[in-house]
Design a protein around this nucleic acid. Structure first.
Lengths: 163, 163
DNA sequence: GCTCGTGTACTCGGATAGTCGTTGTCCGAGTCCGGATGG
DNA sequence: CCATCCGGACTCGGACAACGACTATCCGAGTACACGAGC
């Protein structure tokens, strides 16, 4: 079990967009900033657009930018948009199948599976922690030179023709 | 991102073994209890044996049983044994690659990536919650009739020849 | 009657295929900018 | 000189392959029991 790379890419892109804060940024430029696959990054950004975390503008001088203020974008939003809203642990109710579930009153199965409950509790702690941190928090905890450095790198990439 | 079915199977098997508490139980009987693939369950139980959560005994009248008391087996142990000890979020340090990482003093990269830190914090909350619950807790929260029911089902399966 | 040897049945354990999701790639629809043209 | 039209280039968006992990399966090594033979 491992999270897709898209989560890391998406978070770094959101952070970069928050720092740049200068109109639309083409996805190709973002890919060049981190030397990652431009086309697959595009696919990931599409999911963020559908989740209304980013807005996209087509055409020349187009690109993506944050749809909300950095304070209003939580890590949970980004993870949910890229990894889906399904739970980590999927209870298939095997307790009701086979010999263990046969010839048993349905009343006992009315209350939820204890294993699923325990796993859900842990997962909720994870989600709560993710929902408690925003892009703005990441900006605040980063070194003060990061914003300046990202802007300079972006200008450097923009100067290069054909990228 | 989704956990494998083996986690659900493994947890139910640990709970069942704790309730039975009657010497080795063949993996085939456990599979019959929940109507799941016997061979694949065997593979999952192997991982639990390697993690020293279960002990296995070969030969006739062999099988698997808990290696420790239910109070000493946490959900984290089972999940780690079946899903691996890798972190959910794998930071590949893309901040150091591409234009964003070029021509930058290595001093700034000395401190860890803020995104990785935030994700790790959430993951630690998840792990802590998993490590705080044991098989014994699951037994305590289950209906009082569960133990009796599981034993009866096991006897029923054992009576069937050829299973 | 007791002990020993052997055969059998059963168990775990690792090596071997099938299937689904994630990763990576490509091309088309739509949009905006810049220049050329005509008034 | 200014408004209009057109061409080009760039962008996002969805449709199309390749790889890896999870799922599922099989067969072999090893063990304990049960039975029968011998003492």
């Amino acid at each position: 079990m491992r999270m897709g790379e898209g989560v890391e890419w998406g978070l770094h892109c959101c952070l970069t967009l928050a720092w740049l804060d200068n109109g639309p940024v083409p996805s190709g430029k973002l890919a060049a900033l981190f030397d990652i696959s431009p086309t697959y990054l595009n696919k990931c950004l599409q999911r963020l657009v559908r989740a209304e975390i980013l807005t996209s503008m087509p055409g020349a001088r187009g690109g993506v930018q944050l749809a909300r203020a950095p304070e209003d974008i939580t890590l949970m939003d980004v993870v949910a948009a890229l990894e889906g809203r399904e739970t980590l642990f999927c209870c298939t109710e095997i307790r009701q199948q086979g010999a263990a579930g046969a010839e048993t009153s349905a009343r006992e199965f009315a209350q939820p599976c204890g294993i699923a409950t325990a796993m859900r509790r842990a997962e909720l702690a994870w989600r709560r922690e993710l929902a408690g941190q925003t892009i703005a928090d990441l900006m605040a905890s980063a070194p003060t030179t990061s914003a300046r450095r990202i802007r300079r790198s972006y200008d450097h990439v923009s100067a290069r023709p054909g990228v």
